[in-house]
Amino acid sequence: MAETATHTADHSTEHGHETSTGLTNNKLAMWLFLGSECLLFGGLISTYMLYRGRVSSGPHPSRIFDIPFTSVSSFVLLMSSLTMVLAVSSAQRGDDRRTNLWLTVTALLGATFIGGQVYEFTTFIREGLGFSTSLFGSSFYTLTGFHGVHVSVGVIMLLSTMGIIRKGKITGNKAEVVELIGLYWHFVDIVWIIIFTLVYLIPS
């Protein structure tokens, strides 16, 4: 069913289609999952917002945040959304070479972002903000760490998909698989858009 139903949303949902809505199972499941993830990240963000000013010991956020640095890594993640969408559009055109190219670039940008986060965390720890130092520390590392794990999972998915596409072992519709990973990737990006503003730019 995935062969036919990728972009038939405009057609009426007559019985000729395989699914009742004319949408594919996989894409519906992905959007539901993302709807659910909103409440997951919402909870972590709210915890951070509640606790960000509570610094019983160790450094205060405004003292350790390095806005220029984080701006650059935010920009990197934002641009990875562009390369991701280009990968999706190449995959829909059936252009394997470009798909692979853009997926590679996206994975690289994602990895760069993770590298930046590792650097940021080590710097903060050196400056005295441990995981247990204060409520701010715990909630900061948990929120951004959770996001980082999501990005890492995304990078692994990108790399595996590329490998699988190259070996021709993909099960299901290639363009759809790339599109689904794209949705996940953009979601991780929009979470960062929120984190960047609420955590970094608005001082507590």
Binding site: T21, G22, L23, K27, L28, L32, G35, G42, G43, I45
Partner: peptide, 19 residues
């Protein structure tokens, strides 16, 4: 499809509301 918007924005709206 509007169904996708419904699923996603329901989650987003609930998150905003409860938190």
């Amino acid at each position: 499809s509007k169904i996708f918007s419904f699923l996603f924005y329901t989650g987003l709206g609930l998150a905003l509301f409860v938190y």
